[in-house]
C-alpha cells in the first residue's frame, strides 16, 4: 500500500498526535499482547495495588491469542481478536499511559473518551490474517500469566506489522467515517 507511515515503538505522545483516523501504518519494535483473561488479571492486580507485568506507558497492547507455534517459528498465527471485549478494562490502562491498542472492531464511547483525555490511538489490524501477520512477528516471549495459554501476556518484536488508525486521539473514527462514505442504504 502506498503512503504507509513507518511507526516505531514506543508510541510516545509526539507520535500519537500526528496519527489521523484512516492512516495506514507499519508498526515496528516491541509490543505486548493481552486479551480477555489477561486484561481481567491486570485490572485485578491494579485494584490490589500491585504492579502490572510490564510498564504500559507509551506502549501498544495487541489484542491477540496466537495459535501454538510450529517448531522453528517464533509464534503461530496471530491476527487480532475483537476489541470490544476489552472495553471495560482499557480506560484503566490508558489512564496509566498506554498509548496504543491494536485489535479489530468498534469501541465503546468510554474507551474513546479515555483516548481523547489521555492521548491514545486505536489501530485496526487485519482480522483473520493470522498467517500473514505472523510473518511480521520476529520474536515472542511469554512474560506473564503463562497459565492462560494462548491468553498469556507476550512481549513481541514486530517488523512492519500493517494496521490502520481506526480511532485517533481526537476521537475521529474510521468505522463511522468509512461506513458513512460508502453507505447507499
Amino acid at each position: 500500500m502506498a503512503g504507509e507511515i513507518m511507526l516505531q515503538t514506543p508510541l510516545t505522545q509526539d507520535k500519537v498526535k500526528k496519527l489521523k483516523a484512516g492512516d495506514a501504518v507499519l508498526i515496528s519494535g516491541t509490543i505486548y499482547t493481552g486479551r480477555d483473561a489477561a486484561h481481567k488479571k491486570m485490572v485485578e492486580a491494579l485494584a490490589r495495588g500491585e504492579e502490572l507485568p510490564f510498564e504500559v506507558k507509551d506502549q501498544i497492547i495487541y489484542y491477540v491469542g496466537p495459535s501454538p507455534e510450529k517448531p522453528g517459528k517464533p509464534i503461530g498465527s496471530a491476527g487480532p481478536t475483537t476489541s470490544y471485549r476489552m472495553d471495560s478494562y482499557a480506560p484503566k490502562l490508558i489512564a496509566l499511559g498506554q498509548t496504543g491498542m491494536l485489535g479489530k472492531g468498534w469501541r465503546a464511547p468510554e474507551v474513546i473518551d479515555a483516548m481523547k483525555e489521555s492521548g491514545a490511538v486505536y489501530f485496526a489490524a487485519m482480522g483473520g490474517a493470522g498467517a500473514y501477520i505472523a510473518k511480521c512477528i520476529k520474536a515472542a516471549e511469554i512474560i506473564a500469566y503463562p497459565e492462560l495459554g494462548p491468553e498469556a501476556v507476550r512481549k513481541l518484536t514486530v517488523e512492519n506489522l500493517p494496521a490502520i488508525v481506526a480511532i485517533d486521539a481526537q476521537g475521529n473514527n474510521i468505522y463511522e467515517l468509512g461506513k458513512a462514505k460508502y453507505r447507499r442504504a
Binding site: 491477540v64 510450529k70 503461530g76 498465527s77 491476527g79 487485519m126 483473520g128 493470522g130 498467517a131 494462548p150
Partner: peptide, 17 residues
C-alpha cells in the same frame, strides 16, 4: 495472500481455529 501463506506453510489461516 494470507490464504496462500496458510496453504503453502500449512499453518492456520486465522489464530482463532
Amino acid at each position: 495472500e494470507n490464504a496462500e501463506i496458510a496453504r503453502s506453510e500449512e499453518v492456520p489461516m486465522c489464530q482463532d481455529t
